[in-house]
Every structure is written in C-alpha cells, then in structure tokens.
Amino acid sequence: MSELGAFLKSKRAAIAPESVGLPAVGNPRRVSGLRREEVAQLAAMSVDHYTRLEQGRVTTASDSVLNGIATALRLTDAERAYLHILAQPPVRSRSADPGGAGRPAVSTLLRDLLEAMKDVPVLVIDPRGDIVAWNDIAVALYLDFAEMPARERNMIRMLFLEPRVRGMHQNWDEVAAVSVARLRMSVGLMPGDRRMAEVVSELLDRDPDFRRWWGGHEVLATDTFRKSFDHPVAGRMLLDWQALTVAADPELTMIVFTAPPGSATADSLRMLGSWAAG
C-alpha cells in the first residue's frame, strides 16, 4: 500500500462512527472507524474515486477533493498539509540530493555565528536531520559529534539509537513521539531521498518504539518544543528548542536551545558554557 493509502486508512480507522452521526454497529460493521463509502459520502465524492485514491490506483487529486477528505477525516492543519504533500508531491529543487550523499556547505559566517553564541547550544541540521555544524556548548550538552561517524550524526537516529542521548531525556517518550511525527512530514517533503529512506529503514529495523509510532502515521510540523534533560554535569535542565531556517541557505536549520531568563536552567546553561570553554 502507498503511503497515501496507509495514511488515509489509519485516519479513517481513528474516527468513531458515532462522532459523525453514524451508527457504531450494524449492517454489520466489520471495520474500526469509518468505511471507505462513509468517508466518500462525508467528503462529497464518489466511492470509486476515494477507493482508487486509497488503493494507490490514483496518485493525484485536486485541492477540492483533498480538502473534502481532510474535513471528513477531521485532519489537523499539519495532517491536512501532509495529505496535500502526498497527493501533490513537491517538485525537488536542483540542490536536492536524491542519493543523500551530498551535504549542504556551512558558510564561514554561519560558523562564526555559532562560535559567538557561547552560552546557547546550537546545532545546524540539513533536511534529513543530519548534524552538519555545532558549537562547543552543544557538545557539552550532548556529546562530541566530531567523534561520531558522519552517518550516525543524525538527530532522530541519536534520539533512538545513541544510549547517551536517549538516556539523558527525562521526557523521552514525548520527545520521541513528536520527533517521529516531524520526521514523517520531512519524508513527505523529500520523496525518493535515499538518505532519508536509509534513516527510516534503520530505525524501523532496530527500534520497536520507532516502529510503533511510525505505524501510527501521526504528523506534526511544530518548530518549538520543551525538553527535560538529566545532564551528567549540569543536572536537571528544562530547555526550549526552536528550529530556525537559515535565510542564506533554506536547506539548513538551526536548532537553538534556550532557557527562561532567571531560571535555574539559565544558570545551569551559563555553568555549562563556562565548563565547555574551559
């Protein structure tokens, strides 16, 4: 089954029939959630068209059809955007690397900026989540990225498969679930990318938690989140991260970790910065 079909099937299965005015049992009702014909009725489209879309026999659809399906399935804004991405795949840019072998170059100005941000951990990642640059305090917060093989230096891979990173997250379940949902959106935006497929394949093969969340077809597009760390040097820290696009190179994203001014975590960050500088 195509990703589009699997996504639609998972979302209609999650809707209780009675929530849209349909009987929960009867006729008989052999499937959980909504039937295909019920989704088609709610979306004001033919059953045949919806069935062919879910089965992968139709790979594109108009905005009006997709909006009708999104409304029928009560999709969130992120899920609605993802549905459009799957049914209307984005055109890859010339700089996109379908083989995943190339990495965006990090400019000297961006590296100078990272060096100047001595009290704020910053990572620079590419569209696949591979870490391509960092500052000293980010090393102090996480680990020495330079010692890792480049293909293992990936944000979500480390979250699941690097014991030091996985163990330091006190709210690991929450962070991991959100990260998987963000990854699904990224995969949709980069159809055919081999490096992205490699990361997903390894995680599916090696981690049951990832398999469970990936099978749920949840999608998120959030650019902010709070992480609770238990750091071996700085102790308990509540850090907010933000994903900021680098204007000079939209393929790169800065992940910036901050703490509210005057908080205990802000004090811990300053201590961590001094420790990293020493």
Rank of each mutant, 00 (worst) to 15 (best):
T51N: 02
A24F: 07
V91Y: 03
A43T: 04
L22S: 07
P232K: 09
V47W: 01
R206P: 09
G215L: 08
I69Q: 09
E54T: 11
V120C: 10
G216A: 15
W214Q: 12
A138G: 03
V31Y: 08
R212N: 14
M185T: 11
R184A: 13
L83R: 04
L22E: 07
S93W: 04
P28C: 06
A234Q: 01
A276S: 13
V187F: 13
T60N: 13
M45Q: 04
G33F: 01
I15M: 06
Q55C: 01
H169F: 15
E174M: 11
W172Q: 07
P232Q: 10
R166C: 05
R128F: 06
L75G: 02
I255L: 15
P232V: 13
I15N: 08
P28H: 14
P121H: 10
P149W: 13
D144H: 02
P104Y: 02
R206Y: 12
S93T: 12
F145S: 06
T76R: 00
A276E: 06
W213S: 12
E174W: 12
L269C: 09
E162P: 04
I69T: 06
D144R: 03
W241Q: 09
L110Q: 00
A6M: 11
V139F: 03
L34W: 02
G262Y: 00
A259I: 02
G100M: 13
V106A: 06
I137F: 03
I156T: 07
T71Q: 14
T60W: 03
Q242I: 00
V25Y: 14
H231T: 06
I156W: 01
Q242V: 04
N154P: 03
S201C: 09
R94W: 05
A87H: 04
P28K: 10
S95V: 13
T108C: 02
E147V: 10
E174T: 13
V20P: 08
A78N: 05
A101I: 13
V47Y: 05
E37C: 07
G167F: 14
L53A: 06
P28M: 10
P28G: 15
P89N: 06
L75Q: 01
Q41T: 13
A44H: 14
W214M: 11
S107C: 03
E3I: 09
V139H: 08
N171M: 11
